[in-house]
Every structure is written in C-alpha cells, then in structure tokens.
Nucleic acid binder design. Structure first.
Lengths: 337, 337
DNA sequence: AATGTTTATGTTACCGATAACTCTAAATTA
DNA sequence: TAATTTAGAGTTATCGGTAACATAAACATT
C-alpha cells in the first residue's frame, strides 16, 4: 500500500509537505505542489482514512440504525439520511435492528468500537434507554427518529401520531363508521402509545364507544404467524366495520388475514393505516393512509445530527422536530353512512 | 476517551498485558486477567477499532454498493448481505449509486480511503469497468452482483435473464399473445442485454415477429417524466397485447402510464416483469413476474466475498453463481387465446 | 548446584497520518 | 548594512493499538 512516505521519498520532500499538499494547508511553493501531485498520481496514492481518524480523533463516519429495512418508511428515511450525510461529506454506516433489543445492542457495540462521529437511531422502544445512556456516557452525539424514549432528552424527529389518529377516526366517522378497531404496535414504543391515545380521545370526541376488546397490541414488525390477528378478529363481537392499523406492516398483515377468510376490503371491512406502503410499487394506491414525510425524517434528522457534531458544546438546547402528516383518502374505506 | 494505557496504569500492568486480555492471546495469569477486566469495566473501556485497523492492516469493514435503495429487489438483497456480514463478524458500510456513474465514483473514493476489506457491488453498467479496475489495482477484493461487466473477471452472482425472458414469452404465447413488446433498461447493463437476447430468441422460437419498434431501451431506475413511455406506446401499431418489463420499476412505470390513459391491466393490456414488487406491501400479488432470489444474491455474494478475503491468494479461480428464477403466474395476463 | 524450560509480563518499534514546533534562506525594513 | 520578517520547508511527538523480541521468576532436569 502506498503511503505518504513513499510519496515523500519519491518527490524528495518530507512527509509533512505531502500532507500539506493533500490538505491544502500551510504554505507550499507551486513547484513543490506540482511535483508532489505528480508523484501521487504516478503511484495511485489514496490517503488512509484510518490513520487520519486516529490522529484527528474523528472518523467522518455516521451510523444509521433502523428497525426494519424491508419497511419502505425506513428505506425512504434512509435515503434522506444518506443524501444529507453525503452533502456534508460524511460517510454512512448502517444497521437494522429488526425491532430486536439484542440486535440493537450488538450494533451499539459496533458503534462504540468504530468511534463514529454520531448516530441516527430509531430505537426499538422504551427499553432502548440503557443503550442511549451508554451512547451519552461515551459522548457520542445522537438524534432519535420516530420514537421517544422516556428518561432520555435529546434531539429528535417525530411525527404527530395523536393528530394522525384523530384524523383517521374523523374520516371514518364521516364515512359513517361507528365500530372502529385499532391494531397497534407494542406500547413500549412511544408511537404506539401516541396513536392509541389519539384514538381513544377521538373516539370519545365523536361519542363512540371505546372497548379494550377492539384494540390489539402486538409488534410493528412483520410476522410469519397470523393466528394472533385471527383470534383478535374472532374476539370482536359485533365485528368492527373499520380497522385502523398502527403502521403499514400491520395493515398488510390484517389484509392478509382477511384475504384468507375471503373477506374483501373495503366491501366487507374498511381499513386505514399510518405510513405509506412501498414508495413506487403501488401503481394505483388503494389504502387510505396517514402519510408521514419519511424522507424528511431522515434528511432533517441527519442535518440536526451533523449540526450537533459540528457545533459541539455550543449547539444549545435539544431540538425537537415534529413533522406533520397528511391524510390521503383513497379506496379502502366504504361509505356506510 | 479511555485508552488501553489508562487501563494499564490503573491495573498496574503494561499496555501489552491489557491487549492480551482483550484479545485472549498469549499467557495471562487468572489473577491479572481478572484485575484487568475489572478495571476495564470500571472505566467503561471500549477498544478503538481505528487504532487496531491501522496496525492490523484490516478494518473489518465491508461495503455494499447498490443502484437503487428504493427498489425492494435491492433492499432484500441488502438484508441478505447484512445477515451474512454480521454472521462473520464484519461490519457493513453502504451506499446507493442511483444508477449514476458519478455517484458510483464518489463512493469508490470513500471505499478506497476507508480501506474496507472488501466490496459487494452492483455496478451501474459496462461503464463501471474503470471503477472495478481501480479496485483491482488497489487489491480490494470485490464481488459483482446482478450485472456482469465485460473485460472484468471476478466472483459474481447472477440471475439467468435469458431463461427468464424465455419463460415469460412462453407463458404469454400460451395465453394466446402474439404481439409482445419489451421495455428494457439500458443495454450498457448486462442484465438488459441478456433479457433482450432471451426475448429475441424466444420470439423466434415461437414464430413470432420481432420488430425493433416493439422494444424500448430506457433506464432501469424510476423517473419523473413518463413521456418517453407515452411516445413508445403511441409508436407501436398495431398495439401489442402484452408487455414484458425488464424489471419491477419499469413495470410500475408502464402501469402508471396506462392508468393515466384509462387502460386497465390485464383487460386492455397484459403485463409481466422481472423481479417482485415490494416484499410485503402486496397483500394480494397481482403482477405475473419472474421472481429472483434477491436475499440469496446478497447472502451468497457476501459469503463469497468473505471467503475471498479470508483465503487471500489461496482462494482459487473466480466463482460464478447463477441463481435460478421462478415464474410466478398471477393476474396481470389475460387469456386471449 | 548449575543449567534449561516454561510462564507471565514488559519494552520497543511501528501502522500512516497530522499538530506543533523548528529551521533556513530570501525578502523586506529600518 | 544589519535587523527583522516571512515563505517554504523539515523534525519530532503523538493518536491507540499490536507484533516481535526481551526478561525475570518459577519450576524442572541432570
């Protein structure tokens, strides 16, 4: 491997002079600069980032940890994060925790060992607190995405789940629905709590009966076994006329289950959910959804992170960005008025 | 930041002893080992991977470069690659070239500077040759994914595009179609060439007329402007009864265009394509496709890469894995027989 | 008892870069 | 002309680890 010393020797200068040429620092005569540059090209020299990182005490690396790489909400978010990182000259490592605390922990280890300059993280849930505390203790700047973690203050990008739930309930009532069910992710995730809370409030506001039987708490991630959902559907009597799904994955799981029973959406049952399905895979979008600005989650989160890194101590108080979401009415709700 | 020397000082041993404890090398008395471990915990010590990388001349980092992070084929592939990397204790950097040679080049720079141990790359096309030559020149092991690049021998994972095209044509003819069109990616990508070749051969084999007018060469990536596809549809007279799309993105773009014209699939026009759409977003899969084993592309490719890295010179001749694909007949083809 | 082995640990040099300081010759100033 | 400044380099130490070699004490061997 060609080093700065090889260049120095061949160009008859010191290593420091080569370093100065590379980084455009200090004073170098045009003649020397040209000579060094020529030798660098001749030898195909590429600076060793590891060596620089070691002495500069910064790696120029950031880490993006998401919970489900097959979920278009997160890949779109990732795209936003990547664009923002690239714009500022940072490189991006990434990992996928699969909504799994142990996996999250393994990635945490990688993050610390690698001495990344900062972390963009969608935590699996409240139980991520110790992980975040570890990051804080090691002075690794981080920005939370999508989910709050009680007990940990930090920069954060959130959606307004409560408002989203309200809008969904409002839309459903306007379409004449009165028996509305909710399938939700684990309440250890703040998003699930928010959406439940918004749901309950909106039900009350619209004088609709709220019953725990009509709410299922499960996981936001994909599953192989639909029996939990089957049992829930059976349990609800009388059957709801509409279901709100806590995210896109859950909407799909419910629709799968219904499909298996020969039930059709929206003819037999209406469905709405949070988050879009695949970004472009849907030719003729069918589901009525609360659409979140996934790209902005990543882009703005990354921007906050980089700001925090570059300003260091001077970055001021924690910032919280709440991104508005939008109701997109499509064809998965039947008018039963 | 806590270093090995801080541990050494507090435990009254040399840095080397600490290093031995960390790496489980050499001989250490149980007493010393325990003492060192205790101090490490007390001080929350985490080894500095950069420093290790520098002296060991390996980073334990791999790089995955894909061409479209919003395409489920590639995210599924990424998932496979991530799983395989993790299994072998490697960390994964990733990038997204967007089918863009310049972006690919920028990532190449990152790859070289970072001294990653290996690269898994889906090249944008034949023009990636100089990039691959640069990797080769710098002795960076790499495995190609999905696309061949003429002039560059290497380990590679491919699908059988020719056979896939044959199967699609066969299926369409069995359904009575005789005027079949093909919308394809750029022929600078080997996949596009293969699929075209298979298409022409199959047309001939089935005694169907082949005309260049019925083939559109465009880009595999998503686009904002559908006019190129509009023009192509207008150009074909008589209109085809079926269209083969060179990948999932193109199928969606065509369906969007048709949707805009009020044409319905499959009633007015049949469509088939290569690759699945979103992995779980489709509740009730509609498109008849040639499904490729996206996860295996990533998983096996990563495995080959790691093998190549670990065996070094002794890894033997280049390996080529051709993954079979499967025709999944669904509802996007009308029987016009 | 003298010597050879083994075990446990320490010393030194180095990986490839940069910061901070030093040095020299030429240019500028008094 | 002598003193001072400055442009354009070079020297040395350091980042946080590890390999290779060195060493001291304990134990075994003849």
């Amino acid at each position: 491997m060609v080093t700065i010393y090889d260049i120095a020797a061949k160009a008859n200068v010191s290593a420091m002079t080569v370093s100065r040429v590379i980084n455009n620092t200090g004073r170098i005569s045009e003649k020397t600069r040209a000579k060094v540059k020529r030798v660098m090209e001749e030898l195909n020299y590429v600076p060793n980032q590891m060596a620089r990182s070691l002495v500069l005490q910064r790696t120029n690396l950031l880490f993006l940890l998401i919970t489900d790489i097959t979920n278009p909400f997160y890949t779109t978010l990732a795209r936003g994060a990547e664009d923002a990182a690239k714009k500022h000259g940072f490189r991006l490592l990434f990992g996928n925790s699969d909504e799994n605390l142990d996996k999250e922990n393994e990635y945490l280890d990688t993050i610390l060992k690698t001495r990344v300059d900062g972390v963009l993280i969608a935590p699996t849930g409240d139980a991520s607190l110790p992980h975040l505390e570890t990051l804080r203790r090691h002075a690794v700047p981080f920005v939370l995405l999508d989910r709050e973690v009680p007990g940990m203050e930090s920069d954060i990008v959130l959606g307004d789940g409560k408002e989203g739930a309200r809008q969904l309930v409002k839309h459903l009532t306007e379409m004449g629905h009165r028996r509305i069910a909710l399938i939700n992710g684990s309440l250890t995730a703040s998003t699930a709590r928010q959406r439940l809370e918004g749901f309950r409030e909106a039900m009350k506001l619209n004088d609709l009966a709220y019953s725990d039987d009509y709410v299922l708490e499960t996981s936001f991630g994909p599953r192989s076994d639909l029996s939990e959902i089957e049992a829930w559907l059976d349990r609800m009597t009388p059957a709801p006329t509409a279901i709100i799904a806590g995210n896109n994955v859950l909407a799909v799981e419910v629709m799968r289950t219904l499909h298996g029973r020969g039930l059709r959406v929206p003819d037999d049952l209406s469905i709405v959910c949070f988050d879009e399905l695949a970004s472009y895979a849907e030719i003729d979008p069918f589901l009525t959804v609360i659409s979140q600005q996934a790209y902005q989650f990543g882009y703005l989160g990354m921007q906050m992170l980089i700001e925090r890194i570059q300003e260091g101590e001077a970055a001021g108080p924690w910032k919280k960005i709440v991104l508005p979401s939008e109701l997109l009415v499509r064809r998965s709700v039947k008018n039963v008025g």
